[in-house]
């Protein structure tokens, strides 16, 4: 017989036992391992996706920050450029103003130096001329010269304009003090009398006269009362000379100042005052 029923039953049992054994030792562990691996791979993929998303996010953020940084850099650069330009302008302006101030101070100093020099020259010239004139006049001072001077003085008193005479007459009338007559040299009695007569005649003065000697007057005679005076002196001529010399010296340095100053920025006040 081909079929042995005991063997059939035994093989059924064997098969069922084998099913249990393989389920216990093969299918369950292998399927669990596959599931675990799939979960792990899924988790890794999810993690990779998350990392990718995060990386993308960080990349976007970085890109955004980069753009912001570029914008900030550009704005800062333009601001710095503007600041630098304004600072440069300011510095140039300061330098210009400082140079102008320096130049003005230099011109002022030159002007002062010129003025001092001019005064010095004028003073020295005057002193020299005066000294020479005094010496010459003193050497020439004789009785005749003194008489001539008195005559010239009296002539001058008489030659005054009527308005001047009237003003002086008024001053002489109002005077309470004696009229003062100053001269470089001591006047003779006749000369004093001649002056008194001329004064009483021209200015209608009835008061007293006080004669005194004044070395300051250079060969001259001065009649004064209450602040009004009539005088003749060589010093007048010398003063005229001094004035003419001063004007001449003021005119002379003009080209020098013009040369030193900028033609574009030359100002009227830069020219010496005449």
């Amino acid at each position: 017989m081909l079929i042995d029923w005991f063997t059939v039953i035994a093989q059924v049992v064997n098969f069922l036992v084998l099913v249990w054994l393989l389920k216990r030792f093969l299918y369950a562990p292998i399927l669990n391992a596959i599931d675990a691996r799939e979960k792990r791979i899924a988790a890794e993929l999810a993690d990779a996706d998350a990392r990718k998303d995060e990386a993308q996010k960080e990349r976007d953020e970085f890109k955004h920050k980069n753009e912001e940084f570029d914008q900030q850099r550009a704005s800062l650069l333009s601001k710095a450029t503007l600041d630098a330009q304004s600072e440069r302008q300011r510095l140039l302006e300061d330098a210009r103003m400082e140079s102008e101030g320096l130049r003005a101070r230099q011109q002022e100093a030159l002007r002062n130096d010129y003025q001092n020099l001019k005064e010095d020259i004028i003073g020295r010239t005057r002193d020299e001329v005066f000294a020479i004139a005094r010496k010459a006049l003193n050497d020439l001072a004789t009785v005749n010269l003194e008489e001539h001077m008195v005559e010239v003085f009296i002539h001058r008193c008489r030659a005054l304009h009527e308005e001047e005479i009237k003003a002086l007459q008024y001053a002489f009338k109002a005077a309470t003090e004696p009229a003062r007559v100053r001269s470089t040299f001591p006047l003779q009695a006749e000369q004093q009398k001649a002056i008194e007569l001329a004064a009483r005649e021209v200015f209608a003065f009835a008061g007293q006269f006080h004669f005194e000697i004044s070395p300051d007057l250079v060969s001259g005679i001065e009649l004064s009362v209450n602040g009004h005076e009539v005088a003749w002196s060589i010093a007048d001529y010398l003063l005229e000379l001094e004035k003419n010399v001063g004007e001449h010296l003021i005119v002379q340095p003009r080209p020098v100042v013009q040369k030193e100053s900028n033609p574009d920025e030359s100002k009227p006040e830069a020219q010496p005052e005449s």
């Binding site: 081909l2 042995d4 063997t7 059939v8 059924v12 069922l16």
Partner: peptide, 14 residues
């Protein structure tokens, strides 16, 4: 064992 009709019969029975 699969050459035995008893085994194949057992498997078919299962």
């Amino acid at each position: 064992p699969t050459g035995s009709l008893s085994t194949t019969a057992a498997l078919a029975l299962c």
